[in-house]
């Protein structure tokens, strides 16, 4: 009987947890809590194409952007299919901190000055904190500086405002999609039946073709304002293009039916029609400076 107990003791003693290596690895995984892992690079750039993306300029970095739209392709050989015309917008965007970007720009379209604020509300993450989406709030003011009699009456006549919510998810390493409801208010419009307030729902996305090249698209569905009869035929903006990244630069090359490069212009005042060649060749060049 004693012998049995003795054997039992030996048995227990030798039952020392001499786990093989694989178990040491899983032991480590169990022992250490995974930190919050924020999703990075949902888009390559702070803009999907025309509109803003949920990407931010990093704190204390400065981005300089030059955007360019040629004329419409259907202007024919005389205008060299739009290449004779130039519309530019330049902009500076600055990362104030982790969740705040501010920007300033000036564009050829209606000689507009613009300023914006972009705030990060949610950040897609995995690990300790699991969040399926990123969300940002965007707001901007645009000031039309054309020398026009009606605009001279009141300074406020020159102003237009944009509010938007940018909701995006990086589904896979390659595919990201963004939904962006926009609200635009123009203080002054062409005629009394043109709408001052405009709602639009944006859908944008990107698909990475290689590590440094992605194909992007962007569409805004502009809701017809009830009781308004726009004095001109406006179209929903649709843009398709490529993002090409080379070290510190991102080039965005695309085709779009809008001429303006600020929200008030490309959402509310797009006059090009894809179906009859009212399309502009465009590019954005973005360079980030680190201090």
């Amino acid at each position: 009987m004693k012998k049995i107990y003795f054997l039992l003791i030996i048995g227990f003693m030798s039952f020392s947890p001499a786990f093989p290596q694989d178990d040491l690895e899983s032991l480590l995984d169990d022992a250490v809590e995974e930190p919050i892992q924020y999703t990075s690079a949902t888009f390559k750039n702070t803009h999907v194409l025309n509109g803003h993306s949920v990407e931010f300029i990093r704190p204390h970095d400065l981005e300089f952007r030059i955007s360019h739209r040629f004329g419409q392709l259907n202007t024919g050989a005389y205008e060299l299919w739009g290449l004779d015309q130039a519309n530019i917008h330049y902009g500076f965007e600055y990362g104030v901190n982790d969740w705040l970007n501010v920007g300033y720009g000036r564009g050829t379209y209606q000689k507009t000055y613009d300023g914006f604020i972009k705030m990060r509300l949610l950040r897609q993450s995995s690990g300790k904190k699991n969040r399926p989406i990123s969300m940002s709030y965007f707001t901007s003011i645009a000031v039309n500086s054309l020398n026009q009699k009606e605009l001279n009456d009141y300074f406020t006549n020159r102003m237009a405002y944009t509010h938007a919510l940018l909701i995006a998810r990086k589904f896979t390493e390659k595919l990201s999609l963004q939904l962006s409801p926009h609200f635009i208010h123009r203080n002054f419009v062409e005629t009394s039946v043109d709408p001052n307030d405009i709602f639009a729902m944006g859908l944008g996305g990107r698909y990475k073709l290689t590590k440094r090249v992605s194909v992007n698209f962007e569409y805004f569905y502009v809701v017809d304002a009830p009781g308004s009869y726009p004095s001109q035929k406006y179209y929903n903006p649709l843009s398709i293009g490529f993002d090409i990244e080379t070290g510190g630069h991102v080039f965005q090359l695309h085709l779009t039916n809008s001429l303006a490069m600020i929200e008030k212009g490309f959402i509310a005042e797009t006059t090009g029609n894809w179906l009859d060649g009212g399309v502009h060749l465009g590019f954005n060049i973005s360079r980030v400076f680190t201090f």
Binding site: S40, A41, R58, P59, D61, K211, G247, V288, T290
Partner: peptide, 11 residues
């Protein structure tokens, strides 16, 4: 540099 970090992870 934040951009380095992004390129490190992405590319």
């Amino acid at each position: 540099k934040a951009l380095m970090q992004e390129h490190f992870n992405e590319n």
